[in-house]
């Protein structure tokens, strides 16, 4: 279980939080000029990378505040937590050397030895 450092309450157990999916997804307004594709991507399409991921969390059993988080999905390491109105940290400020707990290949699973 993760420890998440709520920007308002401090470090707490993951069980107090809910994940809100990808962060920085811009919501187009609902006007008809927005094309089907643009609106459809907002509603249905989310990134799911292995590695650095910008995501949202809400301290649902705490202060109920939303905030953003940068997490390495391959190691579950939380790299940065920042408030919702703070600027998105640049990707190159993080080491993006997709490392995994078992040193698995970048794609797919399989154990350490199979990699070689």
């Amino acid at each position: 279980m993760l420890i998440i450092d709520c920007p308002y309450c401090g470090p707490r157990d993951q069980s107090e939080f809910s994940n809100g999916g990808e962060a920085h997804v811009k919501r187009p307004d609902g006007s008809a000029e927005i094309g089907d594709r643009e609106w459809g991507e907002y509603v249905f399409i989310r990134a799911n990378p292995k590695g650095i991921f910008y995501e949202r969390w809400v301290h649902s059993h705490g202060c109920r505040k939303w905030f953003n988080c940068v997490r390495d999905t391959s190691t579950d390491e939380i790299l940065k937590i920042y408030k919702i109105d703070e600027e998105r940290p640049k990707l190159d400020s993080f080491k993006n050397n997709v490392k995994t707990p078992s040193g698995e290949p970048n794609l797919g699973s399989g154990n350490f030895t199979v990699k070689k």
Partner: peptide
Amino acid sequence: KKDFLGKRSLIRS
């Protein structure tokens, strides 16, 4: 109204 939750989706194909 210009916008509300889901408005644009009401004219999806």
